[in-house]
């Protein structure tokens, strides 16, 4: 038999559990009721208007240091894998945000060797891996162009085909370039603003999540190891 919490139960002797029942019902009703007051409420109108009118430039540096706590999951509370915080994150650092296949990603500015515009033209070499878009020459140096979508998110291929890479982010010694659809802006963050990955993981390119942006922060060293492997 199923009883809804609001239904009258069969007659029961008065007991001491009457008050806790009432309290629990009240709690459950709250869970199921409208939740307009929660933190997911839409931003105030003036904030929306200010954002709509803002002229955000790609090179603009936004100080987005935030005080946040990382997610305390059950597994974290146990003696499982610990967050992998790179040494360079001990001090506040800049992150460049960009988009690939509709997903916003971030890369530490310190890992960048440069940014190039990309026309889409690159020399195709026989036997190149699937993630390679070809080779371009930049300042007399050969640069392998990486199809970031295919390398990082093959499961999303075909979702946003209308967009093609417009820029290249030079990484490593400048001999590799991540092809990206659009460069957004830069942020200054500190390590508390990132939910760092736990353990080695199965994605070497994943450093963590920029919590305020809900964007993945890339581990460039991990990417280079992936490409070398």
């Amino acid at each position: 038999m199923i009883r809804r919490s609001g239904e009258t139960r069969p007659a029961q002797p008065a007991s001491k559990i009457a008050e806790p029942d009432t309290a629990l019902k009240s709690y459950l009703d709250t869970l199921l009721s409208e939740i307009d007051g929660l933190s997911v409420a839409a931003p105030p109108t003036e904030v929306k208007e200010a954002l709509a009118n803002a002229d955000i430039k790609c090179d603009e540096v936004v100080d987005a240091r935030v005080e946040v706590t990382t997610q305390a999951t059950i597994s974290e509370a146990e003696s499982g894998p610990q967050p992998v915080v790179p040494q360079w994150a001990d001090e506040a650092f800049q992150v460049l945000l960009f988009e690939v296949n509709g997903i916003k990603l971030g890369i530490p500015l310190a890992s960048l060797k440069g940014i190039l515009n990309f026309s889409g033209a690159a020399s195709q070499l026989p036997g190149q891996p699937s993630w390679s878009l070809g080779v371009i020459v930049n300042r007399e140096e050969k640069v392998v162009v990486i199809d970031s979508a295919r390398l990082l998110m093959p499961e999303r291929l075909g979702i946003d085909e209308a967009v093609s890479p417009q820029q290249l982010l030079l990484i490593g010694d400048g001999d590799r370039a991540l092809a990206v659809d659009r460069i957004c802006n830069t942020l200054v963050v500190d390590k508390e603003a990132i939910r760092w990955r736990y353990g080695a993981g199965i994605r070497p390119w994943y450093a963590g999540i920029i919590i305020e942006e809900l964007s993945v922060l890339l581990d460039v060293d991990g990417i280079m190891k992936m490409l070398a492997g």
């Binding site: 933190s39 997911v40 935030v66 946040v68 706590t69 990382t70 997610q71 305390a72 690939v100 296949n101 997903i103 990603l105 990082l152 998110m153 499961e155 999303r156 939910r195 994605r203 994943y206 999540i209 919590i211 305020e212 809900l214 993945v216």
Partner: peptide
């Protein structure tokens, strides 16, 4: 990126992912 098909994504719940 790289999420399995049954993962829609992530949300920011009062500073927790």
């Amino acid at each position: 990126p790289g999420a399995p098909p049954y993962v829609l994504g992530i949300i920011n719940l009062r500073g927790n992912v």
